[in-house]
Design a binder for these strands. Structure first.
Length: 112
DNA sequence: GTGCTGACACAGG
DNA sequence: ACCTGTGCCAGCA
């Protein structure tokens, strides 16, 4: 009786969305990490699920391996990161802002 | 069944 | 910082 939400989602998609929702504030996971954490598919499958159903989950907490934000939604994600207190990587060099993976990368393990 | 594309990852230039 | 090529898996024409 746990499925009260997302009635017709493929299990894989549901799992991906579940992980995304489980990511604590101030933390981020890479597509590859999510796929590995699930133990299935690959980073592209996770990315596609996010692209399709990500609208219902904190997609901004799922970033690329190099910490680059989502193409087209950088500003949106940045607003959330600032509110959550996510460690950001130097927004100075007029380039693309990125997340400080060194601190923000969450591996699914409970941390203090 | 074949080929292209994609909210990717990694290595090299 | 940027682009290119290759590998991975899945969806779509």
């Amino acid at each position: 009786m746990e499925n009260q939400e997302l009635p017709e989602l493929p299990e894989y998609a549901e799992r991906v969305l579940q992980v995304a929702e489980e990511i604590p504030p101030g933390r981020v996971m890479t597509y590859g990490d999510v796929a590995e954490w699930l133990g299935e598919g690959g980073p592209r499958q996770v990315g596609r699920v996010m692209a399709l159903y990500g609208g219902s989950v904190p997609w901004w907490r799922v970033v690329r391996a190099d910490g680059a934000l989502l193409p087209g939604h950088e500003h949106r994600a940045l607003g959330h990161y600032r509110a959550e207190g996510t460690p950001l990587r130097d927004p100075k060099a007029g380039g693309a802002i990125k997340v400080d993976m060194r601190q923000a990368r969450w591996d699914g393990t409970a941390e203090a």
